[in-house]
């Protein structure tokens, strides 16, 4: 696991944000953070490389050109109450996989609601080790550590919960109304905008930790050729660059809301919300690919557990709990 972003860089960002309207003299910055002026200078350079608009130089002082779109803990944690999702943020400039980091932190006792963020992932992944393209500072690469008081058998509903939270966050902050492909891919015009990988550490009747990895393509202007037909970004869909910070904060708030709903009222309420925003819930012709083969079916709605009810072409009805779903046009 790489070292988390130096807390003093976080302090520097916080200092500049707090004094966004004035020029902060270099020596003052150095004194407040407790480092040398040349260290401040090198960090400012680093932040500039990451797209943070900082005006000025060591002699004159520094001023933020505009609020930085960096997912710094000091800009996120104050938004959340103690114990809620987001109250504790661990940030990396670059890491392998935020899900792996979150599990590592979980094994060291990190609390429920810890959020791991990275500006860039070098081994971002989906199911079965498939790669998740994680271009620097273009997307939201997040992993949320939960320690739900649920039996492991109830945990799969967390994946639908994550999908509706991501759907609502994207819609409320960008106006984009994404579809949800069962169980948890966000699609716009059939192309993936957001992917979710949920991993659980549990024994038969004891759940230790769940990590929900959520990747959202935000400001990617261009995707690698092999992804262009299957993936998209908020920028590619709206033509506008979006600040990632408000989307992330909205995501974490929606996650907390749905998480509380799930704990208080059960998974049925999550399944209802899911069905209300997904075209895959009912009447969709799909092909199901699973470890046991492939078949075509029509969707008949969700079970309260989140399982997808389908009628196979041979007339048999069943509830899916696993398998890959593809729309049949």
């Amino acid at each position: 696991m790489p070292r988390a972003t130096d807390q003093r860089i976080d302090k520097l960002i916080h200092l500049l944000v707090k004094n966004a309207t004035v020029v902060v003299p270099g020596p003052k910055v150095a004194e407040e953070i407790g480092v040398t002026r040349s260290a401040v200078w090198s960090w400012v350079e680093k932040l500039r490389q990451m797209g943070v608009d900082i005006k000025g130089h060591p002699a004159a002082g520094y001023q933020l050109g505009k609020l930085p779109d960096i997912l710094a803990p000091s800009l996120i944690e104050p938004e959340f109450s103690q114990g809620h999702i987001g109250h504790k943020v661990v940030h990396y400039l670059k890491t392998g996989s935020t899900n792996d980091d979150a599990f590592e932190l979980a094994s060291q006792g990190a609390p429920h609601g810890t959020v791991v963020l990275a500006e860039e992932q070098t081994a971002g992944r989906g199911r079965f080790g498939r790669a998740w393209h994680s271009e620097r500072s273009s997307g939201i690469y997040s992993s949320i550590l939960l320690r739900p008081p649920l039996p492991p058998s109830a945990a799969p509903a967390l994946t639908l919960m994550a999908a509706v939270a991501a759907h609502d966050a994207v819609e409320s902050s960008t106006g984009l109304d994404a579809d949800i492909r069962w169980p948890n891919d966000l699609l716009v015009a059939g192309r993936k905008l957001c992917g979710i990988l949920t991993e659980m550490n549990a024994e038969v009747d004891c759940l230790h930790a769940v990590v929900i990895g959520i990747g959202i393509n935000v400001n990617h202007r261009q995707l690698p050729p092999k992804l262009r037909t299957i993936a998209t970004s908020i920028y590619l869909e709206t033509g506008k660059l979006q600040a990632r910070l408000p989307i992330l904060i909205s995501l974490l708030k929606h996650l907390e809301t749905y998480y509380q709903l799930l704990l208080q009222q059960g998974s049925g309420v999550i399944a209802e919300r899911w069905a209300a925003v997904s075209s895959y819930a009912c009447g969709k012709r799909i092909r199901v690919v699973s470890g046991e083969g492939e078949f075509c079916a029509v969707t008949l709605g969700l079970e309260p557990s989140g399982a997808l009810r389908v009628r196979r072409d041979d007339g048999r009805e069943e509830s899916l709990v696993a398998g890959e779903i593809v729309e049949v046009k």
């Binding site: 945990a155 799969p156 994946t159 169980p183 979710i196 949920t198 659980m200 769940v210 709990v321 696993a322």
Partner: peptide, 28 residues
Amino acid sequence: IEAMKLMNEIESDVAGEVVRIYVENGQP
């Protein structure tokens, strides 16, 4: 074990020898 894209890595809670595997890859 996967359910609805929730991947559950099953860890051994004892040290020892695997003497029987009851299920096959891809099986529900």
